[in-house]
Design a protein around this nucleic acid. Structure first.
Lengths: 247, 247
DNA sequence: TCGCAAAGTGTACTTTTGACACAAAGACAT
DNA sequence: ATGTCTTTGTGTCAAAAGTACACTTTGCGA
């Protein structure tokens, strides 16, 4: 192992975000439509951007999220780094091209994040790339540009694993929610059915949700009670050396 | 968000490896002694290197592992990307200095990996940085150079979480092992005691280990049976939609 | 007042967990 | 050969958790 010029390679680092939302029925991801490019099949992509000079990784991901959704202080966690010198499709919007042209040998490494947002809070932003954003059903995502499909899969797996270890699902719901919304959310994330009664029993036993003195109104059936997440009780659970919900 | 020069920043990407080993009693990590540098307190560091031109991330981590331990085809998994433009201590061995000097603004981003090796297979390599490597008890690691302590903690957490989801612990043991070695291994990783009988019962129920027709010899006490990991049975478990061992 | 649609509730059975103590095997020293 | 030392290996019982399953309640609207 010697000192060689081959170390002296430039890298472009970007960040891509897998932004999950929940429409009270199914799980969705916010994807952007890429500009059509000749000879390249049109595919959707994860929102992302190059990293600015004065930013660290988390800040860059937060910025992408903010520019796209208008949201701040949102659940955001790293998935990992992806990238290969032989990466097939190079990105081709203007910024990327400009950056890459100046140094054609630059490799692209992307640090992926996933984020959980309450879809109701989302408002499309006027920024250039945000205009073409839309919420796509997770089950309908079959391919994405670049290596974004691989990133998406890794993010989804991470979400599945983590929902068993931390109460992160509440980030996808409004502050007040019904039990069936919560139930459906867990089913959507985990990808399988959960018995309604057993789910409710376990949730209540864990003591993580708290019933509010408020009911649904105007629904053509028995109105459901509203609940909210109780963080204090969750912290108590943690102190007891808790580590797996077992869903 | 406009096209600005601030995008045009160069990055050095390195990889650092948290290499875990198990001495049949406690968990250890392979650390290297850094060259003493004036004015900088002497601390141990994770082995790592810049990424070569023709490599992808996984290959670079594999190369570091190989140069240090002589081992190939070892369990190796990404922990994540770390790095901050304001990173306090910059590395200071020669390669790093040379690389960084040519572009003093270059930011360092490191992609961390963790690896599980059988300590018995390890043989110190003659390569420069491998000479100063030694196995340090996990419990004795209180500080490391750069942001390596943070990386180490993230790797250890990942190991703890993952041992409940996949049978990765066997990578730390020889092919044949005794039940108490396995038991002690799980205790070392999880950081708490596990009841001997209950541990054995669960392991056997899961059907992941298989008893061999071979016993310890020459030990001044009742010799223990040898066991080995049974991968087939584990795959059957997976098919049943298995996801958590619950240790 | 009837029908509809979703909410909300309990029980019996099985499986898993958790706590706990003593006999068995072999090496070695006397 | 006998005793001592050290670690292996084993079973039970009670409590907790998980699983499977169906009917009543509520409010709206026709």
């Amino acid at each position: 192992m010697q000192i060689k010029n081959k170390h002296q390679i430039n890298h472009r680092i970007s960040t891509d975000c897998v932004i999950f939302g929940f429409d009270f029925n199914q799980l969705r991801v916010l994807l952007i439509e890429r500009q059509p490019v000749e000879g390249v099949p049109q595919m959707m992509a994860l929102p992302g951007d190059l990293i600015f000079e004065e930013e660290n990784l988390d800040m860059a991901a937060g910025r992408v999220l903010k520019e796209l959704t208008g949201l701040n202080d949102i659940f955001l966690e790293q998935v990992g780094a992806f990238g290969d010198p032989n990466r097939v499709n190079k990105p081709n919007d203007k910024k990327w091209l400009q950056a890459v042209r100046q140094d054609p040998d630059a490799r692209v490494i992307t640090v992926a994040y996933y984020s959980l947002v309450n879809m109701n809070d989302y408002e499309p932003q006027p920024s250039s790339f945000a205009k073409s954003a839309s919420w796509i059903l997770v089950d309908d995502i079959k391919e994405l540009a670049f290596d974004h499909f691989e990133i998406f899969q890794a993010a989804l797996k991470k979400l599945k694993d983590k929902i068993n270890m931390q109460p992160i699902g509440f980030n996808l719901l409004p502050e007040k929610f019904t039990f069936s919304q919560l139930h459906k959310l867990y089913e959507s994330i985990l990808g399988n059915e959960l018995d309604k009664r057993n789910f409710r029993r376990k949730m209540l036993k864990l003591n993580m949700v708290e019933s509010l003195d408020e009911k649904q109104e105007g629904v053509p059936h028995k109105p459901s009670q509203y609940f909210k997440f109780n963080e204090e009780n969750y912290l108590k659970l943690l102190e007891k050396g808790f580590n797996n919900f077992g869903f």
